[in-house]
């Protein structure tokens, strides 16, 4: 029994090391490339330099505040967009002619990258938080509403008939039937749009240069590129990627685990 346990643990360790190996190879190559001068340091600082810079900037520099600023704008943008999306969805449910019109417009708008709209956004909203929120809205609303409307269309009729049969009130229908039934679509939609919103936000911050007080992560990257500090630029990029990973693990993974348990996860 103990021998079998030991063997299982050994297998787990081997599997873990096999998965870790490619990362270790990349880290080693990167460090050598920079330290041995294969690639100039100003283009590719060593990982150890970047790591040191990252922690220094997070705890004693401005990087933490830049991160918070970007996140706050993102959350504000997403909150507004979810409300706007809800209004659009309700209007589509209520008025079929509006639904057809809206889906046509949304499909067209969805194919326009945020950066292509930047000149118009600057004209209408100036350069600042409202412009970034406008870009985030463009990244979120069209896609998210289409996900939900498609989900509503494919809601199993049997759930609605069950709700009809017992004369379920609207609030209970929405809370107990529609939202859980639409959760796969909501989650899939959110997963796509949050990434797009995050990328649009960072892109806008870089394009705008500097916005107001401590700018966000895009501003941080831009200003350090201006000053030629690539270690800080990499630090900013790592934080951007880390946020993406954390959101995926902390938020979406948990919801998906639940949906897997229910058997409603779209895979």
């Amino acid at each position: 029994m103990k021998a079998r346990q030991r063997k299982q643990n050994k297998n787990k360790l081997v599997t873990f090391l096999k998965r870790l190996a490619p990362f270790l190879v990349i880290i080693a190559l990167w460090e050598c490339a920079s330290r041995l001068g294969w690639v100039p340091k100003f283009i590719l600082p060593s990982l150890s330099t970047i790591t040191g810079t990252l922690f220094r900037e997070l705890f004693t520099g401005t990087l933490f505040f830049n991160l918070i600023r970007s996140l706050l704008i993102l959350i504000a943008g997403l909150a507004i967009d979810l409300v706007v999306s809800l209004i659009i969805i309700l209007a589509c449910i209520k008025f079929q002619s509006f639904k057809y019109f809206y889906k046509t417009v949304a499909t067209m708008m969805n194919s326009i990258p945020s950066m292509a709209l930047l000149p118009l956004i600057i004209m209408w909203f100036g350069i600042g938080d409202s412009a970034i929120i406008a870009l985030v809205t463009h990244s979120v609303v069209w896609t998210f509403t289409i996900y939900i409307l498609d989900g509503i269309n494919s809601l199993p009729k049997i759930y609605q008939e069950f709700a009809d049969n017992i004369n379920l009130d609207l609030k209970s229908r929405i809370k107990d039937i529609y939202i859980p039934a639409l959760l796969p679509n909501i989650t899939a939609g959110l997963k796509v749009v949050w990434g797009r919103a995050w990328r649009s936000l960072i892109g806008a911050e870089v394009a705008f240069g500097a916005i107001g007080a401590a700018g966000g992560l895009g501003y941080y990257i831009n200003i350090n590129r201006y000053n030629g500090d690539m270690a800080k630029v990499f630090s900013g990029i790592i934080i951007i990627a880390a946020v993406g990973l954390i959101v995926d693990l902390a938020v979406f993974s948990n919801i998906e685990k639940k949906m897997k348990k229910w058997g409603t996860l779209h895979e």
Partner: peptide, 16 residues
């Protein structure tokens, strides 16, 4: 609710 209908579909329960 005075007339309850049980459908043929096995998947009429709420999965969540």
């Amino acid at each position: 609710p005075n007339i309850i209908f049980i459908q043929q579909d096995y998947n009429q329960l709420l999965p969540w």
